[in-house]
Design a protein around this nucleic acid. Structure first.
Lengths: 252, 252
DNA sequence: GCTGGTCAATTGGCCTGACCACTTGACCCA
DNA sequence: TGGGTCAAGTGGTCAGGCCAATTGACCAGC
């Protein structure tokens, strides 16, 4: 059932092996895994290694470790493959496109149900953002607050979480490195203007306008990004945008 | 009513502590953490415990462990807190509402750019789903494949990932326990019909129709869910604008 | 001066073996 | 029948150790 493993980051190999067994259905949901000691023996590794692999799977939400009882399969698909080596996360352009599609739907939805206090939240974020265009930290925090603030208008925790997560993905080292080359007071001021247009559309209950403004904002972000990106790598073909980006993020 | 008592495992406490230090900026991105041996001493725990905590943070994408070199902070926010115990995630209704908003935007986008091979993927998922209405495992897998397949049409990895993640959130023990009470061959057959309507709209390039069909599908899912359990959980979270779409086909 | 190789200190990866705390279920007693 | 006890099984943690990879100082050769 379990076969021995080989070199290189053993606990990850063990985790991969068990994960794939869950994935293909060899281990079904609800099933109890062998004890750690037994797994260690069958895999020809030590118990600490098995423990580390199981902790990986637990963090991924695939198994549930119950003290004194055992280890149980609780889910078949990983919720997040972010840290896995299998796929090097998405590129910045891809991310901005996804945000354009998702967040303009959220803005459209929010426009119909914004209350004065919701608008106040947006205004507060706008103020912080316009007042801090010279400090990347404050402006980023305010930017995030604005986008999640829109999701909050709909009153749905999942939307807020997803919006925040997508925003946070720009916090990868690679993305930040690129961003540092093109983000500055001028681009931030443009962003503030676009935010204000979104805010106004939502405040006036203009669903179509909010949608359009949000799409414009994220499309322009993408444009700003690609323009600087093109300057940086002026010789490069703009076509294979995400490929180039992914290649850079890979294998550091 | 009665809460918890969950005795936090030591390695999780250590992970929480380091995570919060990163979160508040006490440890900045790029900074190198003390060596495992030193951390163990400073925290008054053993080295294996520190290792397990660091592995948690690595899986969450917060730190990067480099063999022979050290441990480095790579990111400030966790990409996904889905698997963390801190919050019992969002409720099923909230999740379905979020999916309704997000996925109908994706379906709308997909309708304009579906190629024959994309439709083939959807058809294949539909076939597996309709043929396996008596087996929860196959039908769930096919259901997932259908929804991510639509996101795949847009050709954006982030959209695919987000769609998959939202779908997988139903795999929580709590959600599954509830679902097992109302999901069955009849409800699955209704879902297949709704899927087919979505597929047809996308295949014919009808963006508005695809959007409406997707919203109808997820709204009806929500409705089926609340009809079985609404009374117990007082599902008063009825959103007016969705009612129109909810008119029509029901479980037969 | 610069390049390239060597070497030792540092650090993570993994192991052995042990003890403790909790869960579980069989068992016994009232 | 209901409860309480107890031992086996299991995860949680610890201590100490060795190995392999990384890194930077150092040195020989061009």
């Amino acid at each position: 059932m379990f076969s021995p493993v080989e070199s290189r980051r053993l606990y990850r190999q063990v985790a991969d092996q068990i994960r794939s067994m869950i994935s293909v259905g060899e281990l079904v949901v609800g099933q109890k895994l062998p004890a750690e000691r037994e797994l260690a023996e069958q895999l020809s590794v030590s118990r600490p290694t098995v423990r580390e692999a199981l902790i990986v799977l637990e963090v991924e939400g695939l198994v549930n470790i119950r003290m004194g009882s055992g280890i149980y399969v609780v889910r078949r698909h990983a919720v997040s493959m972010a840290a896995s080596e299998s796929e090097p996360v998405e590129g910045p352009f891809e991310l901005l496109q996804a945000r354009a599609i998702i967040e303009c739907a959220i803005a459209e939805e929010a426009a119909g149900r914004a209350r004065p206090e919701d608008i106040a939240v947006l205004d507060e974020a706008l103020m912080r953002m316009s007042g801090g265009v010279n400090d990347a930290g404050t402006v980023l925090a305010a930017d995030r607050a604005f986008h999640t603030g829109i999701a909050a208008i709909v009153g749905n925790a999942t939307l807020i979480r997803v919006t925040g997560e997508m925003f946070d993905m720009r916090m990868t080292p690679y993305f930040e490195k690129l961003a540092s080359h093109f983000e500055g007071p001028t681009t931030w001021r443009s962003a503030v203007d676009e935010h204000r247009a979104i805010r106004d559309a939502i405040a006036s209950g203009d669903a179509a306008g909010a949608k359009a403004a949000m799409r414009a904002h994220l499309t322009l972000s993408q444009k700003r990004f690609s323009e600087s990106f093109g300057e940086e790598f002026s010789g490069e073909e703009e076509r294979g945008r995400d490929k180039a980006a992914a290649r850079g993020a890979n294998k550091t």
